[in-house]
Design a protein around this nucleic acid. Sequence first.
DNA 1: CTAATTTCGAACTATTTGGTTTTATAATGC
DNA 2: GCATTATAAAACCAAATAGTTCGAAATTAG
Lengths: 211, 211
Amino acid sequence: MIQNTARPRGRPRSFDETGALEKATQVFWSKGYDGVTIDDLVAGMGVGRPSLYAIFGDKRAIFLRALKAYAERKGAAATKALLAPQTLRDSIVGFLRYAVESATEKGSARGCLVVCVAPLVNDAEVQRFLQSAVAGGTALVERRFRDAISAGDVPPDFPVAARAIQVTDLARGLTMRARIGTPRKTLLKDAEEAADLVLLPHLKTIGKQKL
Amino acid sequence: MIQNTARPRGRPRSFDETGALEKATQVFWSKGYDGVTIDDLVAGMGVGRPSLYAIFGDKRAIFLRALKAYAERKGAAATKALLAPQTLRDSIVGFLRYAVESATEKGSARGCLVVCVAPLVNDAEVQRFLQSAVAGGTALVERRFRDAISAGDVPPDFPVAARAIQVTDLARGLTMRARIGTPRKTLLKDAEEAADLVLLPHLKTIGKQKL
DNA sequence: CTAATTTCGAACTATTTGGTTTTATAATGC
DNA sequence: GCATTATAAAACCAAATAGTTCGAAATTAG
């Protein structure tokens, strides 16, 4: 059962499928959906034109796969940034910091495929996906807030739903500013202050002295 | 001096220049920069192809003019929404409401040309323009906060700069959600709560009872 | 009314783009 | 080695696109 039927028979592929998809992500990320031609994808993915069509399909299909894979990776990383820290403030700061850092990474396009690029794609399936991605993001933050109530870090009447939406809206704002070139340093400071805004008036343990 | 040398000589134009530009704005707004072809502009602006090139130039030139004109109109309206109301809360709510309403107008594309579309245009001049537009927006909100300090509506140590950035980031977040189809009603409620977030802990006159 | 001037509309050309076909190459199994 | 299977690389084709040209139309100046 270990011997996983080994290799397929014919000529082996010269590229790695998931690797090629990640490269496609970068292409869409930097040029936007409509700005990308098939030749851009051929060049960026390192996959020949016919193989590209045979294995991935047309531009729309490639984008959908790239978007979903990217959203999964990024969602996992954001979840980790949000749920790993002990204190609530570290969680929210971590979440916003991650948004800023991944949107200002060297060697990658600025901004975020989900936040900046995908909303401009006029496609019903993309739109549905984004709706659920947004809902998933706020649900995640909401969950962290509820945990904080259980832990007694914020009062039970903490407005969980409203604050979760605000955290994600602030993250969107930071990410869009990253796209237009606002420096990482500025955004990191803003992320910190955004976390303060959302939390400090409520935190039982720390209080409001920093405001 | 009144008689402004009247009409130019040849055949009169069949379109209005600024009107055609506004129509171009709608085209870019709904399809994004790269999604627009010259034929889209010809159809949307009601200007023949040769006239379009002769009078407006190529796609990039049209976009730049449309963007700047749109930003001016919208900036003026936002300024009015922000500076007209008496109370600070009405100002911030008005500002955020205006962002939501103009991003969810019936008969127009969703979102905002400046916030959603222009950041994806890979062009140095567009990027510079957006940087200054963002700076102008936060400066406007900052000014309103300073007025509120002068009026004694918030304490003198109110964190003017941080709150201004947060208000505009929240507006960006709301606008991006408008683009992906979040209903106006939802966004209007979120705008209201966002204003509360930014203000309620500080307001001297109303207090914090609503939190 | 005629000439000059400017715009309009349709047709035209060259280039780019999306998608396919064709031929060559690299592996496996007998 | 030889048949089989699958990919790669390049050429190919049709449709879309950007930008221009040209004759007809609409206006003003004389």
